Amino acid sequence: MKPYVVSLLSGVLVGAIYALMQVHSPAPPVIALCGLLGMLVGEQLIPLIRRLRAGQPVTLTWFRHECVPKISGTPPPDADNNAKVK
């Protein structure tokens, strides 16, 4: 939770500095968020390509465990919990 608070406070500080300088943020918020999402998704292309080049399968389980946590910021699913739930 601490990184989220630090990130939010940093954003508020930068916003206040922009306001004091009487300038607008460099990009509209929706465009900026789309760009950030693209960066997160793009970061996962290299591991995906490496996996394909190594001849390893790209499964939904691999995607959920390796890519989704890095894109969404959530912890990876626990394999033990998945085994217990039927």
Rank of each mutant, 00 (worst) to 15 (best):
residue 20 L to Q: 08
residue 37 L to H: 06
residue 42 G to K: 10
residue 41 V to E: 08
residue 40 L to D: 07
residue 67 C to H: 09
residue 1 M to W: 03
residue 8 L to D: 04
residue 78 D to C: 03
residue 63 F to D: 05
residue 34 C to G: 09
residue 9 L to M: 00
residue 79 A to D: 11
residue 77 P to M: 03
residue 74 T to F: 03
residue 50 R to V: 05
residue 85 V to C: 09
residue 24 H to D: 15
residue 12 V to W: 00
residue 51 R to Q: 05
residue 58 V to C: 07
residue 52 L to C: 07
residue 74 T to D: 01
residue 67 C to L: 09
residue 70 K to D: 05
residue 49 I to Q: 10
residue 20 L to T: 08
residue 83 A to G: 03
residue 64 R to E: 02
residue 68 V to N: 04
residue 40 L to C: 09
residue 27 A to V: 09
residue 53 R to E: 12
residue 10 S to L: 04
residue 39 M to E: 13
residue 77 P to N: 02
residue 75 P to V: 00
residue 3 P to N: 01
residue 6 V to W: 01
residue 6 V to E: 07
residue 45 L to I: 15
residue 29 P to L: 10
residue 34 C to N: 08
residue 15 G to E: 01
residue 63 F to G: 06
residue 77 P to V: 02
residue 79 A to F: 07
residue 85 V to S: 11
residue 35 G to T: 02
residue 15 G to P: 01
residue 83 A to V: 11
residue 23 V to F: 12
residue 39 M to A: 13
residue 19 A to C: 04
residue 25 S to Y: 13
residue 56 Q to T: 03
residue 46 I to C: 08
residue 51 R to V: 03
residue 5 V to N: 02
residue 8 L to R: 05
residue 16 A to D: 02
residue 39 M to Q: 14
residue 2 K to D: 11
residue 38 G to S: 03
residue 77 P to E: 02
residue 56 Q to F: 03
residue 44 Q to H: 05
residue 77 P to I: 01
residue 65 H to W: 08
residue 25 S to R: 15
residue 10 S to Y: 01
residue 18 Y to V: 07
residue 54 A to W: 03
residue 26 P to Y: 11
residue 49 I to P: 05
residue 30 V to K: 14
residue 21 M to V: 11
residue 15 G to K: 01
residue 28 P to N: 14
residue 69 P to G: 00
residue 64 R to M: 07
residue 20 L to N: 07
residue 66 E to T: 06
residue 3 P to R: 01
residue 14 V to L: 14
residue 9 L to Q: 00
residue 54 A to I: 02
residue 36 L to F: 09
residue 23 V to G: 10
residue 10 S to K: 04
residue 67 C to A: 15
residue 9 L to S: 00
residue 65 H to C: 08
residue 79 A to M: 10
residue 24 H to A: 15
residue 69 P to F: 00
residue 46 I to T: 14
residue 18 Y to D: 13
residue 31 I to R: 12
residue 42 G to Y: 09
residue 38 G to C: 04
residue 22 Q to D: 12
residue 83 A to D: 08
residue 65 H to G: 04
residue 29 P to R: 05
residue 68 V to C: 08
residue 37 L to E: 06
residue 39 M to K: 12
residue 82 N to K: 15
residue 59 T to E: 10
residue 86 K to N: 14
residue 68 V to W: 14
residue 84 K to W: 08
residue 67 C to V: 14
residue 2 K to N: 09
residue 57 P to V: 10
residue 82 N to D: 13
residue 26 P to A: 11
residue 11 G to N: 02
residue 41 V to G: 06
residue 81 N to T: 15
residue 44 Q to Y: 04
residue 52 L to T: 09
residue 53 R to A: 13
